[in-house]
Design a protein around this nucleic acid. Structure first.
Lengths: 130, 130
DNA sequence: TCGATATTAGTAACTGTTACTGATTTTATT
DNA sequence: AATAAAATCAGTAACAGTTACTAATATCGA
């Protein structure tokens, strides 16, 4: 089943590229719908899944039970604000060595890890002070 | 709303203590049901959530979209097999320093992190060889 | 033992997601 | 450009995990 061009898929991907806040499928849907009024929610889900499967975007599961999506597929980590729920990119040194630490006393094979950090984001912290 | 004793809650907690495989709510339900035949699924969910809220058990989200539960509330890490989906405890050195690494260039406050590792577990690896 | 209230069983509703349908687009071939 | 095979679509129904509702029951201090 060779991949065929689809305008909808293109619009979804382009929209994701404009966002740095890791929107959910529903956010993608409502936004794309403004430029493409009769796109279907199913189409959004199908293409987000497809794009993630072929590695053009990244699917994020940050513990709120809702999938978030990221057009930035380079390896990086995320911070989740426990106050407002926003998902923010972190610029930090590599911590890939934790795989070695975890592998030490383990008889299986560890190929990767999922890490995200949580706490209070800068904006929410400011609001708390006022 | 003071907490009242509930036999169901006790049974759920005791069952969880006997398991090291981090069962889902549904697994808890079907197992507890053998000793307590007319317990309700809602009761299981409600008590698992309550117990997690008061810190007597831990809720795990390991990326499969289903909540897992753990009677071991001490800080430790988990491995998820991409083959069979099993969730296994890891005995490993602390990696709490990754919070410091992540905090370096971040203007919010990081209070914790969620990390789990994935790959092929020992059992599945053996099966692959045969 | 009584009364206030937390908890329950059972079930309906909700939410994010996936699957199904017949119609529409894409794309390779003429 | 016309055709045909197949991927994709819109729309909607179904699904899974979870939560909320309700009247009945259990707990526990007075």
């Amino acid at each position: 089943m060779a991949l065929k061009y689809s305008r909808q898929r293109e619009v979804i991907k382009e929209f994701l590229k404009t966002r740095k806040d890791h929107p959910t499928a529903d956010v993608v849907y409502t936004n794309v719908r403004e430029q493409y009024p009769n796109i279907s929610l199913g189409t959004v889900y199908r293409n987000l899944t497809l794009l993630a499967d072929i590695g053009e975007i990244q699917r994020l599961r940050v513990g709120d039970g809702i999938d978030h999506f990221d057009a930035d597929v380079s390896p990086h980590y995320h911070f989740v604000c426990t106050e407002c729920g926003s998902v923010i990119d972190l610029e930090m040194d590599s911590i890939d060595n934790i795989i070695d630490i975890a592998s030490k006393n383990f008889d299986g094979m560890i190929t990767g890890h999922v890490t995200h950090f949580y706490g209070i984001c800068g904006d929410c912290h400011k609001k708390t002070l006022s």
